[in-house]
């Protein structure tokens, strides 16, 4: 028995090493793929943020400098576009939450059969092509579109196309399902006996909602908000189709720097800045106790 100990320990270590080799073997293809087609490109634009712009628009690395980085903080145009994008992203998230919460609450409190049917009708827009859904609003908000006609009939608004309200409508429409689904999941999981207990202790409906239901569904609120905030901040398609020259958002600015103005160093530094904001938002989300997106 005494000689048995070290031998089994060694065997165990061997088995563990073999296990770990098998794990690495499974991970390796995607590991290598992401290192080359994700980590490396990310590193390159990080480096390009410090490059200077050559006459062809391609970055020159010999004369590296902080121009593109300082421009982020000093250039009035970039600053105002960045500020506008942040406000748009925050307000879009707030609108989605205000519309989405009561909606998800309604679905989650139906009978199981009704719930499933109602949910399918949320899944369909969720999976439907984003470009097509944005284009639909171009039609509705256009010169002779249904919503424009309605506004004229009520004497309240004219064609909103190419204005900021059109961009808001498009973004809320596009990202509302991302808010509703996590909210639904959180409300559906809720232990209703806790709400009932609050009511038994003479809490009014509103107090029970604010002190029990809302804190217990916090995880869904945060998950939905992150899922709406991130794509809204980087939005390019929606402002491009529904917005105008005065509603340029940071996503349009980046695309413009790369595909039209051909200032790659500046485009690189702005896109890195967007990414930093996203990372902060995401880290804050995981800090709040979430384990997965």
């Amino acid at each position: 028995m005494t000689t048995d100990g070290p031998v089994t320990a060694e065997l165990e270590a061997d088995a563990e090493r073999a296990e770990s080799r098998r794990g690495l073997f499974l991970a390796l293809p995607s590991y290598i793929y992401l290192l080359f087609l994700f980590a490396l490109p990310l590193l390159i634009i990080g480096v390009y943020s410090f490059a200077s712009r050559s006459r062809t628009g391609m970055p020159k690395l010999e004369a590296w400098n902080l121009d593109s980085i300082t421009k982020l903080f000093t250039d009035d145009l970039i600053r105002s576009i960045f500020a506008r994008s942040l406000i748009v992203a925050i307000l879009t998230t707030a609108f989605c939450l205000l519309v989405g919460y009561p909606f998800a609450y309604y679905i989650a409190t139906r009978s199981e059969k009704t719930r499933n049917i109602l949910l399918v009708f949320v899944m369909i827009p969720f999976w439907t092509n984003f470009l097509v859904r944005t284009y639909a609003w171009r039609v509705l908000l256009g010169e002779d579109g249904l919503i424009t006609e309605l506004g004229r009939f009520l004497n309240l608004w004219d064609s909103m196309l190419f204005t900021l309200p059109a961009v808001y409508i498009g973004l809320v429409y596009g990202y509302l399902p991302f808010m509703v689904l996590p909210l639904y999941a959180a409300i559906e999981r809720l232990d209703w006996s806790l709400v009932e207990a609050a009511r038994d202790l003479y809490a009014s409906g509103w107090v029970a909602f604010r002190r029990v239901t809302l804190p217990l569904t916090k995880q869904g609120i945060i998950a939905g908000s992150i899922l709406v905030f991130i794509p809204s901040l980087g939005a390019y398609v929606t402002p491009d189709i529904l917005g105008g020259a005065k509603t340029t958002l940071i996503g349009n600015y980046v695309v413009n720097q790369f595909l039209t103005a051909r200032n790659w160093p500046l485009g690189s530094s702005v896109s890195m800045a967007i990414m930093v904001v996203m990372l902060i938002a995401t880290i804050w989300y995981f800090r709040s106790g979430a384990k997965t997106l």
């Binding site: 770990s20 794990g23 980590a39 634009i45």
Partner: peptide, 29 residues
């Protein structure tokens, strides 16, 4: 296994990175 935590983080990044940043970096690459 070797580099498991890095791999885990690397696998999450493409989900949270904004489209325009990913587009820019792939073009540059």
């Amino acid at each position: 296994f070797l580099g498991k935590r890095t791999f885990d983080a690397l696998l999450y990044l493409p989900v949270i990175i904004p489209d325009v940043t990913m587009a820019a970096m792939l073009l540059v690459f």
